[in-house]
Design a protein around this nucleic acid. Sequence first.
DNA 1: TTGAAAGCGCTAACAT
DNA 2: ATGTTAGCGCTTTCAA
Lengths: 334, 334
Amino acid sequence: MGATIKDIARETGLGLATISSYLNGGNVREKNRIKIEAAIEKLHFEVNETARGLKTNKTKIIGIVIPELNNIFCAEIISEAEDILRQNGYATMLCDCRSDEHREAEAVEFLLHKRVDGLLIMPTGEYSEKLELFEKQKKPVVLIDRKVRGFHGDCVLADNEGATKEAVQRLVEAGHKKIGLIAGPQHIFTASARNWGFQKAMMEAGLFLDDSFMVCGDYTIKGGARAMRKLHEEHPDMTAVLVSNYEMTVGAMIEINESGIQVPGELSVIGFDNLEFARACSPKLSIMTQPTREMAVAAVRILLGKLQNEDGKEVETVILPTTYVGGRSIRDIK
Amino acid sequence: MGATIKDIARETGLGLATISSYLNGGNVREKNRIKIEAAIEKLHFEVNETARGLKTNKTKIIGIVIPELNNIFCAEIISEAEDILRQNGYATMLCDCRSDEHREAEAVEFLLHKRVDGLLIMPTGEYSEKLELFEKQKKPVVLIDRKVRGFHGDCVLADNEGATKEAVQRLVEAGHKKIGLIAGPQHIFTASARNWGFQKAMMEAGLFLDDSFMVCGDYTIKGGARAMRKLHEEHPDMTAVLVSNYEMTVGAMIEINESGIQVPGELSVIGFDNLEFARACSPKLSIMTQPTREMAVAAVRILLGKLQNEDGKEVETVILPTTYVGGRSIRDIK
DNA sequence: TTGAAAGCGCTAACAT
DNA sequence: ATGTTAGCGCTTTCAA
């Protein structure tokens, strides 16, 4: 089908090594360079990356494993990461594991089998056996958003603890004392960090609440709705609630709408992520947002770094700040 | 690093062809099969797909090009497609072109260069030069959601015309006459089909409205908000509005919230896609939804079919029905 | 700087 | 059914 370097060699009368050298940025005599370029143009030559990959043992492909593509947080990170990777000549091979540990392990193996050069992963599972297979092959792995037990690789996180801490502080400043938390599953890294930030801020504010003010959802819309209902039923005196991820925020708003709770009249709310959703809520929701763009940029930077300098051995952990975006969902009761 | 078929040949004392035959499902004597399997186990052998690809000229990778990953409609389709593809041994190489024609062309070329076996694309651009490069190489291309001028390949669409038609009918049944449309950019295939469905249904209902009842947004949140504002200002007598894609629905709801329009008291609304968002709105939004799952399934089915039987030459166009999901955003004014 | 030749790991044609 | 061999398109010694 396409032309090969042999064709270019024949066309130019040069040897294979010269063509290869040209293709890889080596030194080639000016007039030969011109000849080669003319031949490439004429024959529509394109390097066969498969053949190159066989020889170099590099595919120029990065694997990305995520829990849910239908999750705006994941989608934003991937779309940014893919963009930068492609600008650097790397293709992105995507695996969505539907928040299933088993599928996640399969995906990691699948990508290893496809011989990707490196891995970007937002872990679902708690353990890391499969990730170690990558490290054994000296292929870089960068974790995004969540840490994994037993894996001491590079990692880019949001300041989860800081996010809930700041949210509580905002509510406390507005005079709230009975503050509920819709938490995530405690075995998930981000969820326990956010939980901890909440507790810490409450303690620092001198507020001591019953554990029943913290209800664990499962990071899903349904779970958020269920948790909201439970909190509201058990604590009619609760004046504010903090929801600790985006899906649960949607769920909480559904429940709030469907059961006719007035925001912020009866209940103040701080949600999580997705500014557009927050704006579409009535009244506009106050939220904590994570820096998805920056997280992607940092993760790809680290990955490309490892890919280029095999030497750079220090493990990096980047923690990026979250941002409070005010709406009209907090009532001042001071 | 890893073991090769040579190692397996040496370990078992068999020839390369036998091992290769085994790996490709050929006939191998029972006792040899056992020997081979033992050797594979022992040496942790895994086929090197790069080498296989070099030989067979197949990568077992499908390219996917989409306008925006941060678009739940795209994300749902991809996540489903990726799942099925992976079950069939195909990896998914993703390119997000940010709704930019130029980037889209680059992405298609990039994937061709990466030698993917086939392409799934939700086109952004109007033309198809780059797609023809695939066809020239006998590599299958399936369009999803949108058609492209000058390209006569397989195609999976939602019933765009039917969607807006049904929406209008629902509004008409509820007694509405002055119905606005927040349309998409008319050069986009889906937008003009939806527009046409709207007009047709209005005519069939004997309702003739000024063109100014149809405002073109640009399929973005901001555009939806802007269009909503314009419609509302120009037509205070309008009793219902139909928004023709998801992003603009979010935008319209933002505008409705921010300018304090009562739904459905002052204005009835039918939105588009994303049931979860609809439920989170207050009152729950009535919407038309597209069958993302089914669209992905159909597209992958066609693609895999073409990949297996080089012969199957008939071009398929699949049109899948949309669904109305009722909420509380339509007022009965009969 | 350039050419010749070997070889990456696999498949496939041919011979046995 | 199995072994032998050539070759996919490239990179990379090694010599010149």
